[in-house]
């Protein structure tokens, strides 16, 4: 089972890579410049805002900037693994090509989530790592090597949480195919992660609960990297990720029952 899916994934990855290199000039001029602009914007805007305020909510200015860099690292990996495929999904439903996927002898969720790897997104991760190292040097932030490992492990949970949230929203496409800007909303909510969790404490409980999955996606791994993570933080991220994943999975199965083909 596991071997079968690794084999499929390898094949999909190979196709994505050759597709990426088939449109090299496009890839370099647009996608890479586009991602680079957003990476620098994410970090630079925090630099601008904190220029006058300095540290806020118990995070120093350097740590806030580091958080913005790490945001790009995680978002880059997320973009690489899932985003391209999810964007294609509404197209699959609209054109009826989704029938073909349902007929194939593998899990439909697996395929709709991973069919195209966003190779260009990795540039965000690389730039993010580069900037993070730069920030750590100029602000003299020391990071224990073991924390990098813990950070990576926590990031896997974060990716799972982000993935489940996006997949859950995407599933609505089965009922209303013209809902593509819901995912735009997801990307904006995702940007909440650039700010520490404490930013959102003043607002009402309802909004906070709604916002918190997006916020802990980044705050928790970042705290772990800085050696400030508590067992509670880890447990919370773990429970939330697993629960959201299971919910999104069941919701998918439920939604498939309502899929009416658009083709023929």
């Amino acid at each position: 089972m596991f071997q079968k899916y690794t084999r499929i994934y390898k094949a999909l990855l190979r196709i994505s890579i050759s597709r990426f290199f088939a449109y090299r000039s496009d890839a370099f001029s647009n996608i890479i410049i586009g991602s680079a602009v957003w990476v620098f914007f994410n970090v630079f805007s925090i630099a601008l805002v904190t220029e006058k305020t300095g540290g806020v909510f118990g995070w120093s200015r350097g740590e806030l900037l580091l958080l913005a860099c790490l945001y790009n690292v995680i978002i880059g990996v997320f973009g690489f693994l899932f985003v391209r495929s999810m964007t294609e999904f509404s197209d699959l439903v609209n054109t009826g090509k989704f029938d073909l996927i349902l007929l194939k002898p593998f899990d439909s969720q697996f395929y709709t989530s991973t069919q195209i790897a966003g190779i260009a997104s990795l540039i965000r991760t690389l730039l993010g790592i580069g900037l993070a190292i730069y920030i750590c040097t100029i602000f003299h932030i020391t990071i224990a090597p073991i924390n990098i490992i813990y950070f990576s492990l926590a990031s896997i949970l974060s990716l799972m949480l982000l993935y489940s949230l996006l997949f859950f929203l995407n599933t609505f496409t089965i009922w209303t195919p013209k809902i593509d800007n819901i995912t735009e909303l997801f990307y904006t909510l995702r940007a909440l992660g650039r700010f520490p969790r404490e930013t959102f404490r003043q607002i009402s409980e309802v909004v906070f609960v709604f916002a918190s999955p997006f916020v802990i996606v980044l705050s928790t791994p970042a705290k772990i990297l800085l050696g400030r993570g508590t067992a509670y933080d880890v447990l919370e991220l773990f429970v939330l990720s697993v629960a959201t994943f299971l919910i999104s999975r069941h919701f998918w199965k439920f939604a498939l029952r309502y899929y009416t083909s658009a083709s023929s």
Binding site: V49, T53, V56, F57, N181, E184, L185, T188, L189, A191, L192, F195, E198, T199, F200, Q202, I203
Partner: peptide, 17 residues
């Protein structure tokens, strides 16, 4: 909502700052 979120986050950020 998309255009509303960014100023709203910044509002809360400055509130703390």
């Amino acid at each position: 909502l998309i255009s509303f979120l960014n100023p709203f986050i910044l509002l809360m950020f400055w509130d703390g700052a």
